[in-house]
Simulated scan of single mutants.
Amino acid sequence: MFEITFMQGTAWIIYLAGIVFVLTRISFNQFRQNKKLQHLVLGSSVSVFGLWLFRVGIEPGLDVHFLWLTAMTLLLGLRWALISGFCTLLVSTVAGYDSWAMFGINGVLGISIPIVISYLIYNFSFHKLPRHFFMYVFVCAFLAGAAMIAVKMLLLSGYYYADGIYSGDTIYDSYLLLIPLLLMSEGMLNGWTMTILVIYKPTWVYTFYDKHYLHGK
């Protein structure tokens, strides 16, 4: 049995409780009957898992890779994005790319919070900013993607320091210094993904509505 710290155990409880809460608020009948939703949820999980395979890092745990969670949130909506992210993390952990001790931490700090932040930025943009195609792509996808990866790396850095796993100098030199290099890349990945989707497959995107972003513009 793997050993976990108090913070890791607490994160396990919080993450699994959150997933159970989300599961009680989605319709499995809808999922069984809606083939398009099945393909989108499963396809998103597979796509994100594929991106997560390409990771680099010096110290264990302090590795970086594309997340693509903002695009997944815009594509699926908040609840299904959280479920899809859980499936991706579960497969990644079972396959040995992530540790079971870190499952809760990765779920809360690396998936759930970035997805919620991405959805909150989308909500803010939808209700407070002009509803325009370029506003959707730039704010909801590009800026949200960049902000999401920065928040994820800052939160994980704080955890590694608070739990005494790495020193502040090690975290800064091996992890935090990479944030500026990843902001543009992650933002562009999410921005281009959503640009292509809303142009060629707008009916796939849960958060995009032609009548709000295109008609009359």
Rank of each mutant, 00 (worst) to 15 (best):
210 D>I: 05
86 F>D: 00
118 S>D: 11
15 Y>N: 04
90 L>C: 03
139 V>I: 10
122 Y>E: 06
156 L>I: 09
62 L>F: 06
136 Y>M: 05
181 L>K: 03
72 M>W: 02
94 V>S: 01
72 M>C: 01
136 Y>A: 05
32 R>N: 07
44 S>A: 15
15 Y>T: 00
57 G>H: 11
34 N>E: 04
62 L>Y: 10
93 T>W: 05
179 I>T: 01
107 G>I: 00
53 L>K: 12
122 Y>Q: 01
183 L>N: 02
186 E>I: 04
28 F>C: 13
92 S>N: 06
190 N>H: 10
18 G>P: 10
119 Y>P: 11
11 A>S: 14
101 A>M: 04
158 G>L: 05
173 D>R: 08
143 L>F: 03
130 P>T: 04
111 I>C: 01
25 R>H: 15
5 T>G: 15
9 G>C: 07
119 Y>W: 15
174 S>G: 08
211 K>M: 15
13 I>C: 07
109 L>V: 08
95 A>S: 11
135 M>C: 01
217 K>N: 14
212 H>S: 05
213 Y>V: 02
140 C>L: 09
90 L>S: 00
216 G>H: 03
16 L>T: 00
10 T>N: 13
184 M>N: 10
210 D>H: 09
19 I>F: 00
10 T>D: 05
79 R>S: 05
41 V>G: 06
132 H>K: 03
184 M>S: 06
94 V>K: 02
16 L>W: 01
148 M>A: 08
175 Y>K: 10
132 H>D: 14
165 I>P: 03
35 K>D: 14
136 Y>C: 05
120 L>G: 12
192 W>I: 14
114 P>Q: 10
161 Y>R: 04
149 I>Y: 10
8 Q>G: 11
174 S>R: 02
22 V>R: 03
209 Y>F: 14
179 I>C: 05
118 S>L: 01
146 A>T: 08
18 G>T: 02
106 N>K: 01
27 S>D: 11
180 P>G: 00
158 G>K: 12
36 K>L: 07
214 L>S: 03
157 S>D: 10
48 V>T: 03
146 A>V: 02
105 I>Q: 00
34 N>G: 12
86 F>H: 02
50 G>H: 13
32 R>A: 12
22 V>Q: 02
